[in-house]
Design a protein around this nucleic acid. Structure first.
Lengths: 335, 335
DNA sequence: GCACATTGTGAAACCGGTTTTAGAAATTTT
DNA sequence: AAAATTTCTAAAACCGGTTTCACAATGTGC
């Protein structure tokens, strides 16, 4: 592997001058610049990132921490983040925290610490952000955080208004008894969605709302709908806390031969691709997940390069996407 | 951040001795060992991986290259690889090659080269393995390669026998006209599955096989089945080249109100989780994807640590998992 | 008791970059 | 024309580890 000293020798200059050219920094005469540029190309020299990292205390690497990469929400996010990361000359470490104990996660973070990881995208709830913040002064972007975090960038979707839109939609197609299967309440996302549902159902003459606890998985959707139907046989609309729950609900309703949406209409939340492969396809509140990934990486790299550490919180809009599971005659009229 | 020299000073020894302790290598007296160990703990010293990497020419990092991380096959793989990687003290870079031109991928690989990435798990077909091999002498594990590769480790699933099992299963439940929607033939996986299908259908009195080209996506499943039904209205079994195709097929058959499996039975290949969320659930040939990820990481790290570069090829068995899409009375009898 | 191997240790060089320092040359100010 | 400033460059120190080298102390063989 050719080093900066090889280049220097061949160009008849000192390594320091080559370094100045490489970093576009400090005085270099036109003449030498030309020679050095030429030699660099000739030798196809590329500076060793590790050596560079040692002095610069940087590795040109970001880390993305997700709960479970097989969850389509996270893999979509990862795809967006990876694209921008690579585009801007960084690489992306993947950390799957799911199921690990927080202690182990701390170990992992520590491990990364002395690798000079430049920044973190935190998209997991297995880690306490406050603890994190105390221990790591690295730039971070936190996704779906509970609230704004001082000196960090948070990116979230407006879950509250998204939930309102979902509920209003179900009401608008005539649902009178709507159940919301909500996610775990330590999760800010789940909390906001439940709040939106409550708000929408208030003062809603002729309609009533049921709240039922779930846990953001397909299985939870299946089990919840079974229980719900036992207690409330007259339910005619389900607002699922996320798409996975919605998928479970649709699956179980199909099995029970309950017609969607004629007997029960279903709306999810997230906008993962899976909602388009079920029969019927599921109406959902689509989050710009891919865009969130892109944005997270872009903001993180910006903060790294500009030593920017103001509190910054970005809220993206979610969008109602109407599909077969809430359109009465959809299946027949489609195509 | 505390350095090895800080430790040395406090322990009253030279940095070299501390290094010897750290690496468990060379002579160190019991006495000093004890002191140094104590000081390391006291100061909570952790060697800087970047500095270490510079001399060792290693970054304790692997790179995983996938075509598309949102494809559940790859995310499952990534999860397995990430677990072992972390467990063995490495970290995992994620590279999404999908859609990029090969030229850009080469750039990316080059970029990684001077980061001292210790090894690569190649699970993408966007890169020509021969070119790769010529340019990078790093340890690599190649997934689903065409054939054995000299001096590298290849891991694949026995697609040929898996396909035979799938076809035999469809025949055993009485299918008489089976169509195989196969994937792109530059893909070794797709080729082997098609070959298995052909073998099984040969000398099969009373049954006939149709081969139809597809491309491993849900959309392809939808379009293929439409075309197939136009030409062959008497098809009663579909062996899809992979699960995504199968999902498309099921989706379209549902839309056309064709009963699965009564009128047409469907079998996929891969064993991704999605096959369990459709209605009906889809029979498939389950590959041990997660295990492949684990194995890939484990073998790669072994090869790195033991300078092991013999040709090594591992073939895993795929397993038929029978679900509703091929069991005539499944839906009613279930549960 | 002497040659030789083994154990133990610190100083110094090294990995491959960047940054500081110091001094020379060219320019601008006064 | 002298002083001050700016441009340009190389030598040396540095980042934080590892490794080589030289040398001392101890143990072993004959």
């Amino acid at each position: 592997m050719t080093t900066i000293r090889d280049v220097a020798k061949l160009a008849g200059v000192s390594p320091a001058t080559v370094s100045r050219v490489l970093n576009n920094k400090g005085y270099v005469s036109e003449e030498k610049l030309k020679i050095i540029d030429k030699v660099i190309k000739e030798m196809n020299f590329q500076p060793n990132q590790v050596a560079r990292g040692l002095t610069k205390k940087s590795s040109k690497t970001l880390a993305l921490l997700v709960t479970d990469i097989t969850n389509p929400f996270f893999s979509e996010l990862a795809k967006g983040a990876e694209k921008i990361t690579q585009q801007l000359g960084y690489s992306l470490l993947l950390g799957n925290t799911g199921g690990n104990n927080p202690e182990k996660n701390a170990d992992y973070m520590n491990f990364l610490k002395n690798k000079y990881i430049d920044g973190f995208i935190i998209a997991t709830h297995d880690i306490d952000v406050e603890v994190l913040k105390k221990n790591y002064k690295s730039p971070m972007v936190i996704l779906e955080a509970d609230k704004d975090i001082e000196n960090l960038c948070t990116i979230k979707v407006d879950n509250y208004h998204g939930a309102i839109e979902a509920t209003k939609h179900l009401l608008s197609i005539g649902c009178q008894k709507i159940a919301h299967i909500y996610g775990p309440q330590y999760d800010a996302t789940a909390k906001d969605r439940l709040r939106g549902f409550k708000t929408s159902m208030k003062h809603q003459e002729g309609s009533s709302g049921i709240e039922y606890p779930g846990d953001f998985s397909i299985m939870s959707g299946i089990e919840s709908i079974q229980e719900l139907l036992k207690k409330h046989s007259d339910i005619d609309g389900i607002f699922a806390g996320n798409d996975l729950i919605a998928i479970g609900v649709v699956k179980e309703l199909n099995r029970l031969k309950i017609k969607i949406p004629e007997q029960i209409a279903v709306c999810g939340f997230d906008g993962i691709t899976l909602t388009q492969i079920t029969s019927p396809e599921i109406t959902t509140i689509e989050q710009p997940i891919y865009k969130m990934g892109e944005l997270a990486a872009e903001r993180l790299i910006y903060r790294i390069n500009h030593s920017f550490n103001e509190t910054e919180s970005i809220e993206l809009k979610a969008k109602l996407v109407i599909r077969e599971s809430t359109v009465k005659s959809a299946i027949d009229s489609k195509q």
